[in-house]
Design a protein around this nucleic acid. Structure first.
Lengths: 240, 240
DNA sequence: CTAGAACTGCTTAGGTCTTAAACGGTTTCG
DNA sequence: CGAAACCGTTTAAGACCTAAGCAGTTCTAG
C-alpha cells in the first residue's frame, strides 16, 4: 500500500538515536541504516527527495528494494533519519560575543546555510510532527541557548525561536524555487497575466511597476532577520 | 508515469483564469473544472490533499478516472485550481482605519483563518513556483495595498510582505500538526528522549523545565505578528 | 440533409511507488 | 548438532498518474 500503514514511533526513535541492539545470530549485514541514509541524503541533495525512493536506494547498493526493509522500518522512517543526518551539528553559539542578538543572528545564518544545502528537508518536515533526532535537538538547543540571554519568559523564548526558524525556512523555500531559468519563465507568465487583468490589482500593478519584484541584490535573509530581531529586542527592552 | 510529464503552463493559466473557449460541438459536458475543483477542496479539507486523488474524484462524480482528464490537463493543474478556489477573495483592506499597521494585521489574521480552513494549501504550494490564479493575486494585492502606506521602498514592501505571509504559513503548519492526541503522544515521546539524553541539551532541558513548551493560552498568531510589525514600524520611522 | 469534425466518456494498458509475506541460505548460540 | 535468528530474494498486492485508442453524440459546413 502506498499510504497509511501502522507506524511504530518507538522503533523510529530507536533508529534515530541508534539505540537498537545489533544482532549476533545471522549473516553479517552488508548495509546499515546510517549508510543508507547518508547515500539517500546525497541523492536528495542532487535530485530531490522523490528521487531517493526505496527502489532507487536498492539499486544504489546493488540489492533488492526489499532488502532495505531489514535496516529501516519503512520509507517514512528513512526520511526522518535522512533529515537528522543532513542537519548535522550546529556550531555552539556560546562563544559569540555581543549577547543574544549576534548569537541568534549567527545561528539563523548557519541554519540557512544548512537548509540551502538540503532544501528537501522543508518538504520532509512539512505538515507533520517530526520525531526529532539528536542533531535536530542540537539545533533547537543552540537557538534556545542564545535566547536564554534575552530574559524573556520561557514561552516567549519558544515563540521567538519559532519566529526565527520560520523565517529561515520561508526564505529557503522562496529562494529554492528560483533556479533562474524557471524564475524567468514564471516572471514572464505572471507578467503577461497582469497585463491582461492588471486593473483588478492596482496595488500589485503599482508595486511591479516600481520594481518591487525585481531580483534583489542584497542578502535575502537580512531584511526579515533584522526586522524580527528588532521586534524581539524591543520586547526585551520593554521587559527590562 | 507517476512523475515528470511535460507541463504546459499556458494551458494551466488558461484553466486558472477560466479563459478557455468552451466547445460547441460534441455532447454536453457533464462536469466542469470548477466543479471538480470545488468538490476536491471539500475532500482535501476533510481528509487531506492526498485523499483528493484522481481516482477518488472520479468515484465522487460517478465517472471513470480518465474522464477527468477531459476537464483538467493533469493532477498538478487540478491542485493549482484547488488552491485558487480554496483561497477565495480577501476582504479589502482599504476601509480599515489606523493606517498600514492595523490593515496589515487584519490581513494577516484573515489569511491565517483561510490557511487554517485549508491547511493542505501549505503542502500544495511548497517548493514550487506556483502559477497564481485570480484569487491568489487578490490576496497579494490586498497586502501590498496595506504596505503601500508605509512609505518603504518597493523592494522592502515586498520583503515585508514575505515576512508576514511566512509567519502566517509557519504558524499554520505548527498548529495544524497538533491535533491534541497526536500532540500529547509526541510530547510524551520527546520527553522520554530528553530524559535519557538531557545532559547533551542543557538549554533545551532548562526551557522545558521552565514550561516553554507547555501549550500556550493566548492567540498563537499574536506574538510573532507583533514582533514583526514592531520591526517593520521601526524601519518605517527610521525612514521618515 | 448528410458527411465529417469535434467532443464526450470509457477501456486498456504501462509505468511509478510502497510494502506484506513466504522462502532458502547462513551464522551463532544452547 | 539442532534450532533460533537473521540475511537477501522472490512474489505479489494495492495504491497512484496518465498515454492511447475506441465508440458514441452533437453540431456545423458544404
Amino acid at each position: 500500500m502506498a499510504t497509511a500503514k501502522k507506524r511504530d514511533p518507538e522503533a523510529a526513535l530507536a533508529l534515530l538515536w541508534g539505540e537498537q541492539g545489533q544482532p549476533t545470530r545471522g549473516p553479517k549485514p552488508s548495509l546499515s541504516a546510517a549508510g543508507i541514509a547518508a547515500r539517500a541524503v546525497e541523492i536528495a541533495d542532487a535530485e530531490g527527495l522523490e528521487a531517493a525512493s526505496m527502489q532507487r536506494m536498492g539499486k544504489e547498493f546493488g540489492v533488492t528494494t526489499m532488502a532495505l526493509y531489514r535496516y529501516v522500518p519503512g520509507r517514512a522512517e528513512l526520511v526522518e533519519l535522512m533529515v537528522d543526518t543532513a542537519m548535522g551539528t550546529p556550531q555552539p553559539v556560546a562563544g559569540i560575543a555581543g549577547g543574544w542578538r549576534p548569537q541568534l543572528a549567527h545561528w539563523a545564518r548557519q541554519c540557512w546555510d544548512m537548509y540551502r544545502r538540503h532544501p528537501w528537508i522543508l518538504t520532509a518536515t512539512a505538515m507533520r510532527r517530526q520525531l526529532m533526532g539528536p542533531n535536530q535537538l542540537a539545533w533547537l538547543d543552540a537557538a534556545l541557548g542564545a535566547l536564554a540571554g534575552t530574559g524573556l519568559r520561557p514561552a516567549e523564548q519558544h515563540d521567538a525561536f519559532l519566529l526565527v526558524v520560520g523565517h529561515v525556512r520561508n526564505l529557503t523555500q522562496q529562494l529554492t524555487e528560483e533556479d533562474a531559468e524557471a524564475g524567468a519563465e514564471w516572471a514572464r507568465l505572471t507578467g503577461a497575466v497582469l497585463e491582461r487583468h492588471g486593473d483588478r490589482y492596482p496595488s500589485l500593478t503599482a508595486a511591479v511597476a516600481a520594481g518591487a519584484f525585481a531580483p534583489g541584490g542584497g542578502d535575502p535573509l537580512d531584511f526579515g532577520l533584522e526586522r524580527i530581531l528588532d521586534g524581539v529586542q524591543a520586547l526585551v527592552e520593554e521587559r527590562r
